[in-house]
């Protein structure tokens, strides 16, 4: 009687008996499979690996560093002289001359806007575009297929791990 009480106190994991058959079949099937895959490594490979990783890591770190062609001091001298020359020219220049839009480079206009000299709101920019242009912009975006996106990521992103959450 006492013995039966003890047995009653033992428990098995949930679904153990339901899954038992599957586990057993798996074990029997596994017996047929080879126990190793026949791969080997060059002699002493793992002993040299630490050194090889260190060497590769160091060479990558060196590649990443930019060595300046001109020293910072020389650059400062050259920049000061250039600024002075520019200042002299701009003072001497005929201030009364009026430029046409064609004479001004687009990059100068971009810089002018980027420097905050003109404040444009989103709706003010949008009225400069026709409906057709706006539709083209939207439809071009929707034409990006999953495949194109995948191709772009595979070709242009070296580190796909960067897209994963840590």
């Amino acid at each position: 009687m006492k013995r039966r009480e003890n047995i009653d106190k033992f428990k098995v994991p949930t679904n153990y008996f339901d899954e038992f058959e599957n586990h057993l079949l798996n074990k029997i099937n596994e017996e047929v499979l080879p126990k190793n895959i026949g791969f080997k490594t060059p002699t002493g490979y793992f002993n040299k690996l630490d050194f090889n990783i260190k060497r590769k890591n160091n060479s990558r770190l060196k590649e990443g560093k930019l060595i300046p062609v001109v020293s910072k001091k020389t650059f400062m001298y050259a920049a000061s002289i250039a600024a002075m020359v520019l200042l002299v020219f701009s003072v001497l220049k005929d201030a009364t001359r009026v430029y046409t839009l064609e004479e001004i480079e687009i990059s100068s206009i971009e810089n002018f806007i980027n420097e905050g000299n003109i404040q444009l709101k989103q709706h003010e920019i949008s009225i400069l575009f026709t409906d057709e242009i706006l539709n083209n912009i939207t439809s071009n975006q929707s034409r990006l297929s999953g495949n194109q996106l995948e191709n772009y990521l595979l070709e242009n992103i070296n580190d796909l791990n960067a897209l994963l959450p840590y």
Partner: peptide, 22 residues
């Protein structure tokens, strides 16, 4: 090695993996 099967590729990927970890 079980994914890419040959030693040379495995060695390259393993080194890159450790560098990425570092």
């Amino acid at each position: 090695r079980k994914i890419v099967l040959n030693h040379e590729d495995t060695d390259d990927i393993l080194q890159n993996t450790f560098i990425k970890i570092y």
